[in-house]
Nucleic acid binder design. Structure first.
Ligand SMILES: [Zn+2]
Ligand SMILES: [Zn+2]
Ligand SMILES: [Zn+2]
Ligand SMILES: [Zn+2]
Lengths: 166, 166
DNA sequence: AATGTTACGTTATATTATAACAACATCCCA
DNA sequence: TGGGATGTTGTTATAATATAACGTAACATT
């Protein structure tokens, strides 16, 4: 079924993830209402599926889940929802994984960095001003106008490191 | 023919690129000999094609060029060469473009950052210790063991900015 | 030359993403 | 309230990137 099979954790060893989901959906709802964006049934469901955990999920994984739920869905269906959610700053695309993950600061259009565990598959979103400013400084020196950043660090998270006695 | 069509420049407004190519191939040759790696005719040619300019090039573009040169080539042919060149630290993969570019410090297995112009398509390789250390600091705080970095900044280079009167 | 190893050729297929157009829903105003 | 404009979803086809699997050829070592 799922193309990525991970079990362990990372963003917070034992947090109540139901709160993450509820919070994300609630924020999305409020943000869309405020901005006149239409968080349709489909888009809401896709966002919910993405927030099922902190592991970036692929478009075709989502597609398969929608199909299993009985909804008629082809690739464009899911990609359009993903586009909407990205443009609305509700999710991020993890380029190095071709996968999508919920945004921790919805509606903010911020530059983010990701630390991605190659063991448990979870992604931690950072917003480190130091990294941002270092890039800005380089850009200034180059005379380069920054449009989009892709900052993704892959490795092993603390939790997985301590439990690598599989 | 080429899937990416760019004409302008970026890494150095008017440098002698023949020197870049010659230098890269010479370094690769020496490095492979020294390490007992086999820089075959195919691999050497692929490296040369990649170094044709400072614009990351896609696998299927390379494939097409090889085919036009009369060589029998299918996707695995080119991907195997790309794998060799990456493992040998002679080229980098630009994740956000699904494309490949020559490495400025061949054989070094270094962390690099890329500034990529969305206009001319050229990529500038940086090795900014500040960015590196900012990431290392975050990683340490997280207890995260870094394996691989993907740092790619897209935008408009100085040269293209000054000539945007197209 | 015999042998083991590495590289390459070949066919088929997997994975990710988009183009193009039709059908349907929602919104807004007359 | 109707009816056109706009936005969303369904549908079919296909593009673009990448790998699996297996056979053959080249090379290296003895
Ligand atoms: Zn959570
Ligand atoms: Zn982990
Ligand atoms: Zn050059
Ligand atoms: Zn440029």
């Amino acid at each position: 079924m799922s193309r990525l099979k991970h079990t362990k954790q990372f963003p917070a060893a034992d947090h109540d993830h139901k709160t993450c989901i509820a919070h994300a959906l609630q924020e999305a709802e409020a943000y869309c209402k405020q901005r006149g964006l239409r968080l349709t049934e489909l888009r809401r469901r896709v966002l919910e599926l993405i927030w099922a955990n902190h592991q970036p999920v692929g478009a075709y994984d989502l597609l398969e889940q929608l199909t299993h739920e009985g909804r008629k869905a082809a690739p464009p269906t899911i990609y359009r929802s993903l586009d909407f959610l990205m443009q609305s700053d509700l999710i991020h695309r993890i380029t190095s994984l071709n996968a999508y993950v919920g945004c921790n600061h919805p509606g903010l259009n911020h530059a983010a960095q990701f630390f991605i565990c190659e063991d448990c598959g979870q992604a931690a979103e950072m917003d480190d001003a130091k990294i941002e400013s270092a890039i800005a400084k380089d850009a200034k020196r180059l005379g380069f106008t920054v449009e989009k950043r892709t900052i993704e660090v892959a490795g092993i998270c603390a939790h997985c490191k301590h439990h690598s006695n599989t």
